[in-house]
Design a protein around this nucleic acid. Structure first.
Lengths: 128, 128
DNA sequence: ATTATAATCGGAATGATTACTAAAAATCAT
DNA sequence: ATGATTTTTAGTAATCATTCCGATTATAAT
């Protein structure tokens, strides 16, 4: 299953863009930014490379609360806050709860491996 | 903004179906079931009525982890477990944490109104 | 019964994502 | 470096869930 990847300027730039922002951007945002440098960029390239970066564990997909996915190069376990008015996603400064998986698995016969928490509300900019 | 709704056999049946299952079904599942009773049912009817039921607070949309949405007539606050192998969604028997919103809002200037937790792993049936 | 308004079906439109293919770029072996 | 090999790309077509639209039907109000 090991796929040998050749380097690609596009993929490197996608990771660089993602690491330079805290805005949890969409594929389209990445596409628009990258197009300035690669005038013939195609959307498939963005999605394929995001998929590769996700497989490599360098990027996380954020797939909730919206009709389109968003991406995050901060792969450390952490929680997200989503503004219900403007859709902005921010990191929540709250320690990751290592005990939660165990507590959730207590009552049932499931093997709980991970968890995610999303907070919703109104962000500072929108007048929270 | 108050829309007066006339009763609809289709909508009543959708709610009945959702209340009778714990499987958190998709729109398509509902459509297939309902088609037995309404032979000319259309998908738009399913989605429109699900939207109305959600606006009325009788149904919740579960929109994560998958390419399609799923729906839940249990609107009491509770958490979900998603099997990474078969995609089944189950309720987690864990008390809803009322303190979490406040704790999450402590560090930031956001008005945290609600939260959601999803647990991932392998379900009993899949050999968890 | 007449009128008004919401709901239906069926199909077309949308929007994000994935799949396909020939050409270009990166790596490897000589 | 040269050429062979394999990955990546751009461009476009396909997919899939969901939304939208328009003519007709069902439900409710007068």
């Amino acid at each position: 299953m090991e796929i040998r990847h050749k380097r690609s300027r596009q993929r490197e730039k996608i990771l660089e863009l993602l690491r330079a922002t805290k805005s949890h951007p969409s594929a389209d945002w990445i596409y628009e930014r990258l197009k300035k440098e690669f005038k013939n960029l195609s959307m498939g390239t963005v999605y394929r490379n995001l998929g590769i970066l996700i497989n490599q564990g360098l990027v996380r997909k954020i797939d909730f609360g919206s009709t389109f996915d968003r991406f995050d190069a901060d792969v450390r376990p952490h929680y997200h806050f989503i503004c219900e008015r403007c859709g902005a996603i921010s990191d929540v400064e709250m320690p990751f709860d290592e005990t939660l998986n165990r507590r959730a698995g207590r009552g049932c016969n499931f093997e709980v491996r991970s968890h995610r928490i999303e907070f919703f509300g109104i962000c500072e900019k929108c007048g929270g």
